[in-house]
Amino acid sequence: MSFWRQAFEIARKDLLVESRTAEVALMTVPFAAVGLILIPLAIGTDAPLLTDLGPGLFWVVVLLFGVLVILRKSAVDGGPQRDLVRLLGIDPAARFAGATLATSLLVLLFEVLLGPVVIALYNPALDGWGWLFIILPLVATGMGLLGSLTGGVTTSLGTRTSLTPLLIAPLALPLLLGATQALESLERGRSILPWLALLAAVDLALAVTGVLAARPLEEAII
């Protein structure tokens, strides 16, 4: 099997396992939606204020609650599954790419399902919303890559659920700034391209790191 074929098969397997529990759609998304309801109750329900804060809060919620997508049950293979993947001779880099693809798609789903919630509750300005078709996948890919890397090094640790968020959150800052500032630039009529380039650079740097680290990561996961 070619590299990409292997990666797609791994991603397909991950998504299939996820579809059995639908953890992201049925648990993480509602949880994040509750979060979006709670925030205005704490900081004030003033309509112009919420319009201002809406986009920023959306991205903060995506990055913080999105960690739960990375920590989902289906992201972790059991011992027998891992052995099988090994025995099949799957390229570690393909495995990394596949796992990343699955997580990224689920983060994208998370973003897409949460979007209407923000629009309904906060009534944000939606100028240049077409750019979201680029921004959302770029952020989702960054989260997926960060997830595969940090999720990989915390596999099977007792403190995984606390440690992974600590490892991801500070490294996710460029994603947060890229996404929020791209939207703000649109609003102010500035060029959005530097921020898209930033998002792409983050994704590229993480992807290169991931491919280089794939073999030691694979050895760590076993």
Partner: peptide, 24 residues
């Protein structure tokens, strides 16, 4: 092994983190 990977990931991300905050 795990901390070596994390050490490298962190280090590669640092310039990007700095640059992003700088631009912002």
């Amino acid at each position: 092994r795990r901390s070596a990977i994390m050490g490298i990931v962190a280090f590669i991300q640092i310039p990007i983190v700095y640059q992003s905050v700088n631009w912002w």
